[in-house]
Design a protein around this nucleic acid. Structure first.
Lengths: 355, 355
DNA sequence: CTGTTAGCGCCTTCAG
DNA sequence: CTGAAGGCGCTAACAG
């Protein structure tokens, strides 16, 4: 484990051949000026000694700086929210991301977003030794993270990439939430549902889906005001599930005729499933239910997932982000991936009762 | 995003004060030889300009190498198995690890263990720019990963730390599996169970637990040969669950009087739960069942976990590993953390029938 | 086609 | 107490 063991250097190879180190350098770079005979001899010697200019990255970078050349460190930073490990939502993105990065030989420097003043640490991020900074963090943390990054000395600003949540002036990879709303609405309308309930305001993503739902209604000549009931949750209520229960009850009171619900995510869907059963509206017999994200299964009697859900291509989002991080253009761009609907057991034709 | 923006240098500070850069260097290191007046002026100027020697790590490392000083890069590499994201087993260790690392300002370089010849990539690991290499990979992958690391040029060997699975000549953090076996056995014996079935040979960890089970029996003056039935699974059978079913059936045939089973992990326990019900031995009424690891809940009617299980302190293992990686001694050591038994609903007093 | 030279920014020794 | 000088290993310009 001795740190100081000798590393093969340009000079070592030069000494072996009896030539100047510049010549070795040129031969190894494939410079056509070196005589082909010596070139091959040099290459052989370098290979034998195991010479690798990358090994002395410090020297290389120092030298390159002089001429304004900055080669990629082949490393990106990835920031996680604190409680990422509980949620398939983040893990699947992470998995896709790591898959591409590991295959491409990029180093990924992970870090949890907390309230650390992390820029004061001797971090590769703070030094600017990364090609890009990627963040999986929650919408609410992105702004502050960005601000911390911008507070770093001017020379180390790195491109910032967000997943799911686009940020002005930054790169992003996200999904077509609006299309997700359309797909969910189309599915319900095809099944004959005419009054749809949803809970609004929980996230930008779901707001975007609402636009899609309205798009679909209008495309079929239906008035959203009549066929869609969007309940705003009462933010003063906590805990979380009490807020959902309140929203549901207000929704049912306002529009007793609803036969379908589009939940803002799968966890809310699972809760609604239980709440609806208690209120004499079992799913799917008397109410169709669609989740969103397709991250949390709702297990039926056979232990399989029965929740119809708008699926996000989370692994693909991770993969696309990795590719974006490795080939950044000069100006921020946003990539939007398609979504699809996973039809399972919580939706059925309106009024068809017990299956 | 301009990479080439100027970084504050030692010379910049020197110019501002009108002093030589060596003096600035000395003042910033707290060298007592500099006159206290100039020292404070220099420190103020450095702070104003935002000078940080860490920012030019390339220059610093290059220079330090000359005198044989090698400071810590404050970075460790962490290797994952390919399908880590499906399993709480890895995630909980990862989470504990990241928590401590992020709090300490260490960079964590993550990588998935695949069949990449990753050392050929320009990676910080291959350059030896990490303090340690930590592996979460499966037992079966550790040897090859280690071999790849050892195949790197001699100068870049880094300490290797494994979690759960100790490896000769390497550092490790693991849990007291033997004690886990004792706890499980003690719990069952306390409940009056006199014949215990288990499946042997699936992992080193479970073999260690078997030793603990026998310890406990002997400590109570019971002969392990009479009170413990350890079935070796038939490795030729696949898939996995068919192998478990076969083991169970052979166990029940060999020792019809068993009233309790210690499964090698929670997934096997969940499977056994179902298999036992089909064989007219419902858990816990006619058979007590203990899982191991406490990673996969077995959901009961109320959606809560009903599986009694030997719990591994996975987050703590991750945290301990992080601390070990940051403060490695000169020779490998192994840290063993205590385990505990989570008593839930799948174990009950022998013969007490329906609850 | 090849050798020489200079310098990236820092750290340390040597000289004043 | 402070300045000067040299070199870590590499790269690119400049000479031959």
């Amino acid at each position: 484990m001795d740190r100081g063991a000798k590393v093969v250097t340009l000079q070592d190879v030069a000494d072996l051949i009896g030539v100047h180190k510049s010549t070795v350098h040129r031969a190894l770079r494939g410079d056509p000026r070196v005589e082909s005979g010596t070139a091959t001899r040099i290459q052989a010697a370098a290979a034998k000694l195991g010479y690798d200019p990358e090994a002395n990255q410090a020297a290389r970078r120092l030298s390159q700086r002089r001429f304004g050349n900055f080669e990629s460190p082949h490393m990106v930073a990835l920031f996680f929210p604190v409680l990422f490990s509980r949620s398939a939502y983040f893990l699947r993105q992470f998995h896709g991301f790591m898959e591409v990065m590991s295959d491409s030989g990029f180093d990924v420097l992970t870090r949890i977003v907390g309230n650390h003043e992390w820029q004061q640490f001797p971090s590769a991020v703070a030094r600017g030794d990364v090609d890009a900074v990627v963040s999986l963090a929650h919408e609410s943390q992105l702004m502050e993270l960005r601000a911390q990054l911008l507070a770093l000395p001017g020379s180390v600003q790195r491109p910032f990439i967000t997943l799911i949540n686009p940020l002005p002036g930054a790169w992003s990879v996200t999904a077509d939430f609006r299309q997700g709303g359309r797909l969910a609405a189309a599915h319900l309308l095809d099944l004959g549902h005419q009054r749809i309930l949803t809970i609004d305001g929980l996230s930008n993503q779901h707001r975007e889906r609402l636009v899609g739902i309205r798009d679909e209604l209008q495309a079929r000549g239906l008035d959203p005001a009549k066929h869609l009931v969007a309940i705003k949750p009462d933010e003063t209520i906590s805990p979380w599930h009490a807020q959902v229960a309140d929203s549901l009850d207000r929704g049912l009171a306002k529009a007793p005729g609803v036969t379908a619900i589009i939940a803002p995510n799968d966890q809310v869907a699972a809760l609604l499933f239980t709440l609806l059963a208690k209120r004499g509206r079992p799913v799917p017999e008397r109410m169709s239910l669609i989740g969103c994200d397709d991250t949390d299964p709702l297990l039926g009697p056979g232990h399989q997932n029965i929740l119809t859900s708008v699926a996000l291509p989370l692994e693909d989002i991770g993969r696309a982000t990795a590719r974006m991080a490795m080939a950044l253009g000069s100006k921020p761009r946003s990539e939007v991936l398609p979504v699809n609907l996973q039809v399972r057991g919580t939706t059925q034709r309106v009024g068809s009762g017990r299956t």
